[in-house]
């Protein structure tokens, strides 16, 4: 029985109580609060970080969505610009070709006209000189015996011949 209920029990009770109270007082004031505070701070911080990460993720997704939309818009825009450019170029090409054809036709017509005029002038000159020449030749051959009337007759006949030649 002495083992279970010691004779110095009161002494032990006092030692146990006093040391407990001192420990409670000191640790309760200087040790536990800072540890508990750190535990709370850490869980707050983790919660905050998680919330922040979630917000950032949502923001990033939103931005990605924006970029995708912008990208699609830009692509559409560029396709439109290219299409427009092609149309303009084709129009211009057609215009240039038409103009060139027109110009060359005009040039051809003009050239043809000029050639015609030259030919007519040359023809007239030739008729004149042929007439003079034939009068001279005829005069020499027949010894200027032809009267003026005969001359004219001859000339007309000749010119008609030459004219018919020309007409061919």
């Amino acid at each position: 029985m002495e083992v279970i209920l010691p004779k110095d029990m009161l002494l032990e009770v006092i030692v146990a109580l006093v040391s407990f109270l001192v420990l409670f007082g000191v640790l309760g004031k200087f040790a536990f609060p800072s540890i508990i505070k750190m535990l709370d701070e850490r869980s707050d911080k983790i919660r905050e970080s998680l919330e922040k990460a979630e917000d950032t993720r949502i923001e990033a997704e939103r931005m990605l969505e924006d970029y995708k939309t912008q990208m699609a818009e830009a692509r559409q825009e560029s396709a439109k610009v290219i299409e427009q450019g092609r149309k303009v170029a084709e129009t211009m090409k057609a215009e240039i070709v038409a103009k060139a054809a027109e110009e060359s036709a005009a040039l051809l017509a003009k050239a043809r006209e000029e050639i015609g005029a030259e030919k007519r002038a040359a023809m007239a000159e030739l008729q004149a000189s042929v007439a003079d020449l034939s009068v001279a030749v005829a005069g020499k051959l027949i010894g200027s015996t032809l009267s003026v009337k005969d001359h004219e007759k001859l000339i007309e006949q000749f010119v008609a011949e030459v004219g018919s030649l020309n007409g061919n």
Binding site: I4, L5, P6, D8, M9, L10, L11, E12, V13, I14, V15, A16, L17, F20
Partner: peptide, 12 residues
């Protein structure tokens, strides 16, 4: 390991 201590704390 002694009743002195445990009784003190249990009563407390």
């Amino acid at each position: 390991g002694t009743m002195g201590t445990t009784v003190a704390w249990a009563v407390m």
